[in-house]
């Protein structure tokens, strides 16, 4: 198999990145490119370093944006950069270089939900479906032509971290499907076709402002809680609510059947329309 790319650089963190790293390593023999991995955002439970060590893949940690931009900007050979679960925004000086092609995995069906934390926003907005997009990277955020998309349903109890896991599996699946065409430079990439209402989600934005209003339908509260639930990762601060005129932060929540209701301290139950209950454990601030 032939490609003009002499080098493949994988950047990212998390499950999809690890799988993609292994896949690109496995395919190295087919194309003969040099492979390397750059860690820009370390993950406390990440396994990419181990994968690199086990397989002998060059590994570099570059948490500094300027250092990373400078490193990429000095690459001379024709290079494919695979940005998988990566929040580093490639500067124009890198993107516009003729010898560099960058593909990025976005965790939504572009052009919908560009920007950060898309799984949270699709849950919060009550979408029934979402998916992933592999696209070419341009100087604009999440604006490049679409290479491949994969979609999935969003369950009525799906939490952000669960959806993220599904999307990472889809990202890996999509990557395997399009990798050859990208390397061979014959991928049929399609323009996104932006609507005037296109809205960019920023990292500073929190669904619902991060505040739960118990007087609203419990379905809304549950959607809010699920949308910001990434376990202990701290992507979002704990959701807050007002209790007896004072602020409290929600520690955990669960949808339960009414017969499982147990009184406890710092606990509140909100009724769903179908009779089930939303159990909320909180801490006064």
């Amino acid at each position: 198999m032939n490609t003009d790319f002499g080098r493949v650089v994988v950047i990212g963190y998390g499950k999809a990145t690890g799988e993609i790293l292994k896949y690109t390593d496995d395919r190295q023999a087919d194309y003969g490119y040099e492979l390397e991995f750059i860690e820009h955002e370390p993950h406390v439970l990440g396994v990419t370093r181990q994968i690199c060590e086990e397989r002998g893949i060059p590994f570099a940690s570059m948490p500094d944006k300027r250092e990373l931009a400078g490193y990429l900007g000095e690459i001379q050979e024709k290079t494919l950069i695979v940005s998988a679960s990566n929040n580093f925004l490639f500067p124009a000086a890198v993107v516009e270089r003729e010898n560099i092609t960058i593909i990025n995995f976005h965790n939504a069906l572009l052009p919908e939900y560009p920007g950060r934390n898309a799984p949270s926003w699709v849950i919060y907005q009550g979408e029934a479906r979402t998916g992933i997009t592999w696209h070419y990277v341009t100087a604009g955020v999440d604006e490049g032509n679409i290479i491949i998309q994969k979609s999935c349903e969003i369950g009525s109890d799906t939490k952000a971290y669960e959806l993220t896991e599904t999307l990472m599996d889809l990202a890996y699946e999509g990557f395997c499907e399009c990798f050859d065409s990208v390397l061979q430079e014959n991928a049929e990439a399609k323009p996104q076709g932006f609507s005037p209402e296109r809205r960019m989600y920023r990292s500073s934005e929190i669904p619902g402002g991060g505040v739960l209003h118990p007087e609203e339908p419990t379905e809304n509260a549950y959607r809010l809680l699920r949308s910001v639930d990434y376990g202990k990762s701290g992507i979002f601060p704990p959701v807050q609510m007002e209790i007896d005129g004072k602020r409290a932060e929600i520690l955990r929540y669960r949808k339960i059947a009414p017969e499982k209701k147990k009184e406890g301290t710092d606990m509140r139950y909100l009724p769903f329309a179908d009779g089930e209950l939303l159990k909320i454990k909180y801490r006064m601030l």
């Binding site: 406390v44 439970l45 971290y161 376990g231 202990k232 669960r254």
Partner: peptide, 30 residues
Amino acid sequence: GVIDSFTVINIVSELEDVFDIEIDAKYVVA
């Protein structure tokens, strides 16, 4: 590869509920 980060989130969430404890992020390490 026996356990991944998503499974850890599920286990932590369930343990918190079962034992009514808080497992702070500083404890959620490999």
